[in-house]
Amino acid sequence: MEIFLQILANGVMLGGLFAIVAIGLTLIFGIVKVINFAHGEFLMVGMYLTFLLTTGLDLHPYIAAAAVVPALFVLGALTQRFLIQPLLSARDEHVQIFATVGLSTALMNLALLIFGADIANTPVHGVRSQVQLGPVRVLEGQIWILVAAVALVIGLQFFMKRTTLGRAIRATAQNRAAAQLMGINDRLIYVLTFGIGAACVGLGSALIAPLYPASPTVGTYFVLIAFVVVVLGGLGSVAGAFFGAILIGIVDAMSGFYIGSDLREAVVFGIFLVILILKPSGLFSTRLNQSHVSP
């Protein structure tokens, strides 16, 4: 029983990790309708920024987040403004997706050029210390990641429902043409949303950096599961991504122990396929709309 609870706790913590990466991804997808293949590289950039700030200025990684989050917001906003936006009028919207693939490769090789292929270790500042929660043990840093993921979900819901900017973002997502008629600057909304999505993963990167060493390819480790989580939760649903992430985390940990680590990916993707067959729009689907297709 004790082992079961420990695995469950490991699974939830792993889920928190997936969630904090996936939230920004689903936000960008839901609103801007762009599948951002460079999302993992945004994470990687954030982790290297955290590494530089913590080693260069001797900051606690969580304090470094105060600089990393705005930096990633700017990176995201610039990506939308100068890479995606010029392609909005392209004949085929898939061009935008390929542009993000290109950005991903470019960022990865840039990191390779600057930092080399070796790993970079962010000082841990005590967040790797263990916390005993009843019968289970987890890392302090893992708890903070889970707390941050929950806070991010609640904060984003509040922002979207209660603020003028949030309402404008939702309006643009629901019907771009109608939003434009209401006087909303849709291009600005897209730039801001892309920035917010990147800022979310910026927060994630500052929290993850002390737990995992940064390397040019670190983003690819996280991003495949993040895509699974986003589809599972219902494309564009922030809360869905969170619960999808926790579910995948638990399935991953359980199958790794009870079935064997060779098969855990097979189990995770098997369950993913079964859920998609039973509920094709994901667990928490938002209403489908095609308004982004119209000019």
Binding site: N10, Y221, D252, F257
Partner: peptide, 17 residues
């Protein structure tokens, strides 16, 4: 004898096993 993908981000279940 257990394999795992090199890109894994969690090995806690393997360790417990």
């Amino acid at each position: 004898v257990q394999g795992y993908p090199a890109s894994t981000v969690d090995m806690s279940s393997l360790v417990l096993d």
